[in-house]
Design a protein around this nucleic acid. Sequence first.
DNA 1: CGGTGGTCTGTGAACGTTCACAGCGTGTTT
DNA 2: AAACACGCTGTGAACGTTCACAGACCACCG
Lengths: 336, 336
Amino acid sequence: MLRDVKRPTIHDVAAAAGISRGTVSRVLNGDRYVSPAARIAIERAIAETGYVVNRNARNLVRQRAGSVVMVLSEPNEKIFEDPNYSTTIRTAIRRLGERDLSLVMMIAGDDRDREQVLRYVRGGHADGVLLVSTHAGDPLVDALRSSHLPAVSCGAVIGRESVIPYAACDERGGARQMAEYLVSRGRRKIAMITGPLDTPGGIQRLEGFADVLGRKASKKLIEHGDWTHASGESAMARLLERVPDLDAVFAASDVMASGALHTLRQTGRRVPDDVAVGGFDDSSVALSTHPPLTTIRQPLGDVALETVRLLLALIDGADHLDPVTLPTELIVRDSA
Amino acid sequence: MLRDVKRPTIHDVAAAAGISRGTVSRVLNGDRYVSPAARIAIERAIAETGYVVNRNARNLVRQRAGSVVMVLSEPNEKIFEDPNYSTTIRTAIRRLGERDLSLVMMIAGDDRDREQVLRYVRGGHADGVLLVSTHAGDPLVDALRSSHLPAVSCGAVIGRESVIPYAACDERGGARQMAEYLVSRGRRKIAMITGPLDTPGGIQRLEGFADVLGRKASKKLIEHGDWTHASGESAMARLLERVPDLDAVFAASDVMASGALHTLRQTGRRVPDDVAVGGFDDSSVALSTHPPLTTIRQPLGDVALETVRLLLALIDGADHLDPVTLPTELIVRDSA
DNA sequence: CGGTGGTCTGTGAACGTTCACAGCGTGTTT
DNA sequence: AAACACGCTGTGAACGTTCACAGACCACCG
C-alpha cells in the first residue's frame, strides 16, 4: 500500500459526486436501481479521484478472504519443469481477478509445507483451494476436505475423484487417439513409456493405450518413467533390450519422448523409418526435437478455465459438481 | 473462508479468558507489558477457541495490503522451464509468511499482463513487489518505480541496478571460477555458450569468462543461446563448425550444457577426453546428464532469502539499499 | 506521606466497506 | 382518492481488528 499518498475512499468519491456513499457502493457493485444521472456523476468522480476499492474493508464486511490458494504438490525440486504450469497459472489469475480474488501460491512438497498450507486455509485466509498435480495418497487432500473449504483440482486426484471435483483433458481418449494412429500407420510392435502410476496422466494414458492394443499391450512392451527426459532415455533403452525389433513407441509426455528419441538415435535407429515415436502434451519441446514430435494436444487453457469455473461455483455455494473432461487433439508431425 | 462455521473473534477469546480484547491484541502482537497470568490465560483461550486473527480486519486498520506480488516476467510459455523458480518461491513464501504477508503471483509476459499488474499494485492491493527474471528494458520496471511502491528484484535488472535493489549470486565471479578451472586443467581452446544478453546471467557470465581468457576469448569461440536445451545444441554445432578442434566449452546454464553434450556426442566427441564441458546453476539436470556436469552452484535459497529481506526492509521504510551479492561454488563432476 | 515512574489493563474511536432498512417521489391500479 | 408498487436514495450498524489514551495499582524515593 502506498505510504506517502493518502488513497481516496468511497466517502471522497461520494463527496465529489455530491451523492451518498450508499449509491456509490451500488455503482461499484453493479446494482440495478441507480439513476443514470447518479451513475455518470459517480463514474466521473471515481475517475477524477482515482478511487480504487479497498479490498480489506470489502472482504471484512463480506466475510470473505479475498483469495484462492493454488497448491503445487510436486515433491521437491522438479516442480517447475512442467511448462504447462505457466498457462494454468496465467489463466487462473485472469479469471479469479474478474471476481476480485487474488491467487496466492503455496508449495506442498514436504510435510512442513503441507502444515503451512493447512494452517493458512484453516485460518480462513482463503476462499478456496486449487490443487495442481496432486499425487495419489497425498494426505493434504483429506485434510483439506475435512475443513469444508471449497477445493477443486486441475487434473483428477487419483482415488479421490468423487470428493474433489476437477477439470481435465480426456487423457484416456487422447492416448487412444495416438495408439489408433500408430496402428493405422501399419505399426505392429508398439511399446509404451508411461508416467508414474500415481498420477492421472500416468494411469489413464496407459489405459487408453491398452484399450486399443488389447492383448498386444503385453508387459514386455511397457515401461514406466517419471516424466523426465532422463527417464525417457532409460525406459527406451530397457524396451529395446527386451524387444529390439519394436517399430513404434508412445511416450506419455513429450519430454520423455525426447529422451526416447535420444536413445533411439544413440542405438542407430532412424525415426520414423525404423521406429515411430508419439508424445503427449504438445509442449514446446515437441517442436525442438529432431524430428518434431507427433503428439496429443491438451486444451490446457480450457482445462484451467473450467477448473476455475468449478471452484467459483463451489465458492458460490454449489454442493455437488460433476468433473469436466475436455477433448484432446492429435497433432501429426514427423516423428510418426 | 469457511461458510458453515462462525469463526471465533478476538472478543470470544477475551471473554473466554476473562480479559479485555485490548490485552488479547497485545498478546497477539507480542507487546511487552502483559502480565504472565494474563498471557497464559489468553494463550489457553486462543488454543481452546481455535482463534485465528482475521487478516482483513488487521490489515484494514493497519492500512496495509497484506501481500506481496511476485511478478514473473518471462515472455510467454517458457516461464517455468527454470527449476530455480521453485526454490525462490518456496523461500519467499516462508519468509513472508513470518510477517503475515502472503505471496500473490502475477505473470507479466505481454502488455495485457503488465497492465493488470500495474492496476493491481497501483490499487494498493500489495505492500511490495518482487521482480523475478525481468529483462532489460521491461517497461514495467519504470512504471513500478514511479508508483513509489517498495520493489526489489531477485537477480539484477540490467540497466536499472541502481533503482531496483536486488540480491543475486556473483555471476561474474562464478564464471571466472569455471574459466579458471578449465584453464587449470590444461584446456587451450575454450569456447562459451552464453545466455541472452539482456539478462544478468547472460551478460555477467560472459564477462567473467572474458576476465580470465582475455584476448583468447575471441568472437569465434563465443555463441549465444536462450537458456533452452535446443539452443545449447545448435550453438554447440555452430562452434564446432568454426573451431572443430576446441577442447572445452563453458555453457552459461546446465540445460544448455546438456544440449551441447548432445551435439558433442552426436559428432563423435568424447566428454571430457576430447572436449571438457562446464555448466552453470547446479540444477537437477546436472546430475542426469552423461557424464554428470561440472558446474557452478548458485546459493539460490540464500539469494531468495536476501531478496525478501531487502523487500521487507524497504517496506519497513528503508530508503536506500545496497545490492547483495553472494558467492558461488565450483562443483567438480565428470564432464570437465 | 505525597510524588513519580513503571507496569499493566480497559475503553472508545477508527479503518473503509456493504447491507438492510426506511423513506421519498412518481405513476398506476382499485 | 386511497392504496400500492416501483425506482431510487440516504443512514446507521456492522465486520474484527489496532492503537492511543486514560487510569489503576504498586513500589520506591525524598
